[in-house]
C-alpha cells in the first residue's frame, strides 16, 4: 500500500477546473517530484493534499485513511507536513517562535527535534531570537523547512523550495532534503527546477494543465526528450 494516494482528484476554483483527475502515489521512504510549468496545478495539488482545498471529486488516502475532507490542522496531526510556496514564515515572530509553531500540536518535549533542526540548519540556531521577516530568502526557506520538521511529519510536502534562491543556496537546500529523507521522512517535492529535482528524486510525475501526462523513474524522465525540451530548457535539435 502506498503511503499517499491520490485517486482521480478534481479541484475547481469557481467554474475553472484546476485539477482534472490527478492520480499519483508516494511510497514510504521515497522522494517523489512533481514537475510542471507555471499554472499546471502543482501547488493546487499540494494544497489539496494538506486540506487547504477540497477536491470536487476523487479521493486522497494517507496510510489508507481518507483525508480529503479533513481540515488542514488535522492533516498535519496525522503526519503530513507542508512547506508552503513562498516560505510563509511568520514575519513578526522570532526564529525560535516560528519553530515552536511547527510543534504547535505536540505536547511537551520539542527539545530533541529542535536540536536536530539546528543541526541541519546551524544558521537558524545563530539567529534564534531574530524576527522571521528579517531573514534572507535562503534563511527563510531553511526556517520554513525546519518549522515543518518540528511536527515530526512522516510525509513532507515541499512547494518550490528553490524559488528565488541563489544556486549555491539551492544546492544546500537540496542536500538537506536528501538528509531529511535519510532520517526516514518521505518527500513529495514540487519544483520548477526540474534537472535538480530529478537528480534528487527516485520517481517523478509531470503535470500539464491539471492532468498527469507522464510518470516514470527520475532517471528515465531525465533522459526523456520531451521532458528535456519542456522542462530542462535544452534544445534537442542542436544536440
Amino acid at each position: 500500500m502506498a503511503m499517499l494516494e491520490l485517486q482521480d482528484v478534481h479541484v475547481k476554483y469557481g467554474a475553472v477546473e484546476a485539477l482534472k483527475g490527478v492520480t499519483l502515489e508516494v511510497n514510504e521512504g521515497e522522494i517523489v517530484t512533481l514537475l510542471g510549468a507555471n499554472g499546471a496545478g502543482k501547488t493546487t495539488t499540494l494544497r489539496t493534499i494538506s486540506g487547504l482545498l477540497r477536491p470536487s471529486a476523487g479521493r486522497i488516502l494517507f496510510e489508507g485513511r481518507p483525508i480529503d475532507q479533513m481540515p488542514a490542522h488535522e492533516v498535519l496531526g496525522i503526519g503530513v507536513g507542508h512547506v508552503p510556496e513562498g516560505r510563509r514564515v511568520f514575519p513578526r515572530m522570532s526564529v525560535q517562535e516560528n519553530l515552536e509553531m511547527g510543534a504547535y500540536q505536540r505536547k511537551g518535549g520539542n527539545k530533541e527535534v529542535m536540536q536536530r533542526v539546528f543541526e541541519l540548519f546551524p544558521v537558524l540556531s545563530e539567529r534564534k531570537s531574530q524576527e522571521g521577516g528579517t531573514l534572507s530568502g535562503g534563511e527563510q526557506q531553511m526556517l520554513a523547512i525546519g518549522r515543518a520538521l518540528m511536527s515530526r511529519p512522516r510525509l513532507i510536502l515541499l512547494d518550490e523550495p528553490s524559488m528565488g534562491l541563489a544556486p549555491l543556496i539551492v544546492a544546500k537546500i537540496f542536500e538537506i532534503i536528501a538528509e531529511i529523507n535519510d532520517d526516514g521522512t518521505t518527500v513529495l517535492l514540487v519544483e520548477q527546477n526540474a534537472a535538480q529535482a530529478l537528480k534528487l528524486a527516485g520517481r517523478g510525475y509531470v503535470l500539464e494543465t491539471g492532468s498527469i501526462v507522464m510518470s516514470d523513474d527520475a532517471a528515465t524522465l531525465l533522459s526523456d526528450d520531451r521532458v528535456r525540451a519542456a522542462y530542462l530548457g535544452e534544445d534537442i535539435g542542436a544536440a
Partner: peptide
C-alpha cells in the same frame, strides 16, 4: 502562552497557522 502564540500566528498568516496545526 501557547494560545497567545496561536492568536499571533492566525493574525500574521491564518492559512499557514492552519498548516502548523492551529485550529483556526
Amino acid at each position: 502562552t501557547r494560545l497567545g502564540q496561536g492568536i499571533r500566528a492566525v493574525a500574521q498568516d491564518a492559512e499557514t497557522a492552519s498548516l502548523m496545526g492551529v485550529d483556526i
